[in-house]
């Protein structure tokens, strides 16, 4: 029991539970099915990108290029679709994912071969890719009328559809299912494959991992490529769900991703972190924004709240680590 209580997943889950209960008591609207459904839907994009950031962080790195890779992969894919009048769904997602994967390879190259600090590398690649996207490929928004319709239709698929008492329809986006499926895949990789355990081993002690026979080069490439691929996928899904392809979108959200992953108990020094924790961390950020709206607090307070939560969570973690080290 005490072991369970010590896990960061448990702590963040309890905090979340308390937040949900308090919000619901203050405004019962929070517990309405429609609100819960929209909450879940809001997790999808941040969640998928955060999974990639998690994998990199477990390996002992950091990836702040994710949102920029997402936008680049998405925009190139959409432009390609418009040029060729392609009407499928599956292939565009494969292409967008592949572009993200290739860009992730760029990170892996600089991190592994050049041995530069991941933070600086991903800052550089992120800036570069964004600059190339906006400077060479284009800056114009692709709005609802021009967007490939089949993508929008696909992203509008509902898992559950019902009538609310007031006559409006409420639905749960099927994209939540995709998010959960990807989370399960990443969890499976982390917990049940050798490369997954290699990520933890390398994040714990790179030299020892090498001595134990892990191929640290392959693991590094795997981490950054997976992160890039998830970014590419999330990018296309994002514009399909929001009906607007704006290559400037998501800039700055890399900090939210890091915050979510760290809130979920992953260590910025590597070797620690879990999919469940990250999902809870993402949910926490989404919930903060949602709760402020529900409680009629001006949305301008969102950032303040997120900042305070991140600082508090990090302070508590640092305090706990130091107490554990002293004991």
């Amino acid at each position: 029991m005490s072991a369970l209580l010590k896990r960061s997943e448990t702590v963040i889950f309890l905090v979340l539970l308390a937040a949900v209960i308090i919000t619901g008591l203050l405004n019962p609207a929070a517990w309405q099915l429609s609100n819960i459904f929209s909450l879940l839907r809001a997790n999808v994009i941040t969640g998928i990108m955060a999974l990639g950031v998690l994998v990199v962080m477990i390996s002992g790195g950091i990836d702040i290029s994710v949102p920029y890779f997402a936008m680049a992969a998405m925009y190139v894919t959409i432009l390609g679709m418009l040029k060729t009048d392609y009407a499928g769904i599956f292939l565009p997602f494969v292409v967008s994912t592949a572009i993200g994967l290739a860009l992730g390879g760029l990170n892996a190259f600089f991190v592994h071969t050049v041995r530069m600090i991941p933070m600086i590398v991903t800052l550089g690649t992120g800036t570069m890719v964004r600059g190339f996207l906006l400077g060479v490929i284009g800056t114009s928004n692709i709005n609802r009328d021009q967007m490939p319709g089949q993508l929008i239709d696909f992203a509008s698929t509902a898992l559950v559809k019902m009538q609310a008492p007031d006559g409006s329809t409420i639905e749960l986006s099927a994209m939540v299912l995709i998010y959960v499926a990807l989370a399960l895949v990443v969890h499976f990789i982390l917990a049940h494959t050798m490369i997954g355990r290699g990520l933890y081993a390398m994040g714990g002690d790179r030299e020892a991992a090498r001595r134990a026979g892990f191929n640290v080069r392959r693991i590094t490439w795997f981490a950054y490529c997976l992160s890039g691929a998830l970014a590419g996928f999330a990018g296309l899904l994002y514009v399909s769900m929001s009906w607007l392809a704006n290559p400037r979108d998501l800039a700055g959200t890399e900090m939210d991703l890091l915050a979510a992953v760290v809130l979920g108990g992953a260590s910025i020094f590597g070797g620690r972190g879990s999919v469940l924790g990250t999902m809870l961390g993402v949910f926490m950020l989404v919930l903060v924004n949602n709760s402020l709206i529900i409680l009629h607090v001006s949305t301008t307070w969102q950032r303040v709240a997120v900042g305070l939560i991140v600082i508090t969570a990090c302070a508590v973690t640092a305090w706990r680590d130091r107490r554990a080290a002293a004991a």
Partner: peptide, 27 residues
């Protein structure tokens, strides 16, 4: 203070305060 007294890693501490300061600007 966050970095030296509460021993938060600089990158995390300043991600948090970046949100906080921008948040105060918005408020």
């Amino acid at each position: 203070v966050l970095i030296t007294k509460l021993h938060i890693t600089p990158i995390l501490a300043t991600i948090g305060t970046a949100q906080l300061y921008v948040g105060i600007c918005l408020v």
